[in-house]
């Protein structure tokens, strides 16, 4: 009898505790009311990318008296923060908007971390192979070289305010360089700052 009561009590307690746990829910990305975090979340990347693209479009740096768009590659984007950041989180948005603006075409053939798509070169290794119909194999001299390169850096600075509070500063910097002349056509820095408990870990 005692065993049965004990078992029932434990099962009830476990079920009660389980029911009280935080509920999993999808983020409403259009009206996200979630609290800010000391690290970088998707809202920060969205804001930084939007600021960058707007600055570039506003600058008219890509305006030229020709009808075809610029060929652009992404160079090195340095992650100088304490967090493990895939810089594509920022650059994928920037590249997408630049292409959609109609002013540029991105190349996957060359990039700061190697080609975006290795298949460009693997497909060329099929030349002179008797196993492949050569009609679809890319000919020599077909890859279009980039004219402009985007490079940049994400910087983090931690500043201690007092024993209980800290300030974390993030700087997003992008540069657009003409590969032919080496001249920089455009650059922009977006700042995102956060202040909170020093117990929060910003990495």
């Amino acid at each position: 009898m005692i065993r049965t009561i004990l078992l029932t009590t434990i099962v009830t307690a476990v079920a009660f505790v389980g029911g009280c746990g935080p509920r999993t829910e999808n983020i409403d990305v259009h009206h996200d009311t979630g609290p800010a975090v000391m690290g970088l979340d998707y809202r920060d990347f969205d804001q930084a990318a939007a600021d960058m693209v707007e600055s570039l479009v506003r600058s008219s740096a890509l305006k030229r008296d020709r009808t075809e768009p610029y060929v652009v590659t992404t160079g090195r984007i340095v992650n100088d923060t304490m967090q493990r950041i895939d810089t594509d989180q920022l650059m994928a948005k920037v590249e997408q908007e630049m292409m959609n603006s109609g002013q540029v075409v991105m190349t996957s053939a060359v990039g700061g971390d190697g080609p975006q798509d290795e298949m460009i070169y693997q497909a060329r290794e099929l030349r002179y192979s008797d196993e492949f119909d050569q009609a679809n194999v890319p000919e020599k001299g077909q890859i279009v070289a980039p004219e402009l390169s985007i490079s940049g850096k994400i910087i983090q600075r931690n500043v201690r305010i007092d024993r209980n509070r800290q300030q974390v500063e993030y700087y997003f910097q992008l540069y657009l360089t003409d590969l032919n002349s080496g001249l920089r056509f455009w650059q922009n820095e977006t700042f995102i700052g956060k202040r909170g408990s020093s117990r929060s870990v910003a990495w």
Partner: peptide, 24 residues
């Protein structure tokens, strides 16, 4: 991707202006 919520603050009793550039 530029249609995002952006923070802004306005000085008391002062004029303000918000500027936007279309992405297309």
């Amino acid at each position: 991707k530029t249609n995002v919520w952006r923070p802004y603050s306005v000085t008391p009793k002062a004029r303000w202006s918000i500027r936007g550039t279309a992405p297309r």
